[in-house]
């Protein structure tokens, strides 16, 4: 029976098509299970980072990719997510600004930099340097700014700094024109 079927010229085509169909079905089923978990986790993560940057936060709104954080009725500040292109891939950074548009806190959401070198951009020793800086000062010390690069990881450090500075200027313009 199987032998007879296999000698048919169309058999390989039918077989491969069946395999692919099963695969597609399985994957879309898996995706439907996991995608909601992934989405919920991302929102959870953003929320917890916002809470660490704005400790008095009671709630937040999103408006054109800008997070507006509130403490009661009062606006505490703004936050945005920016992407930098590092040494090993994209670096996703959440930046919190106070009402005067100075940086209130920086948190690296995800990165694929080399552990021990560029991977150290997540350490507070690096990210705390951004606190209180205005858009003009967000540059590496060697480029005339106020952020010291991590030794041996200039590319990663510069990627973070440039992503933050670039987006910060854009976001402030947006906020001013509201």
């Amino acid at each position: 029976m199987l032998k007879k079927m296999m000698s048919n010229g169309a058999y390989p085509v039918v077989f491969l098509t069946l395999i692919v169909l099963v695969s597609v079905g399985l994957l879309s089923w898996m995706n439907s299970i996991t995608s909601s978990v992934v989405k919920a986790r991302q929102e959870e993560k953003i929320k917890s980072v916002l809470e660490s940057i704005f400790p008095e936060i009671t709630g937040f709104d999103t408006e054109e990719e800008i997070y507006i954080t509130y403490g009661g009725e009062e606006i505490l500040g703004y936050a945005f997510i920016t992407e930098g292109s590092g040494y090993g891939g994209d670096i996703s950074i959440l930046v919190g600004l106070d009402v005067d548009y100075n940086i209130k806190g920086v948190e690296i959401l995800s990165h694929t930099e080399t552990p021990g070198l560029g991977g150290r951009i997540t350490e507070t020793g690096f990210t705390d340097q951004f606190k209180g800086l205005g858009a003009d000062d967000v540059a590496l010390s060697k480029d005339g700014g106020k952020v010291d690069a991590i030794t041996g990881a200039t590319i990663s450090s510069r990627a973070v700094v440039e992503a933050i500075q670039g987006s910060m200027i854009e976001i402030i313009e947006k906020l001013n024109s509201r």
Partner: peptide, 22 residues
């Protein structure tokens, strides 16, 4: 056929890791 089978399991693995071991 091998590639499709392998790719299917890799994608399943990737989805599971993304959801449960981010």
């Amino acid at each position: 056929v091998f590639i499709v089978v392998i790719a299917t399991f890799v994608t399943i693995l990737s989805l599971i890791f993304e959801a449960y071991i981010p």
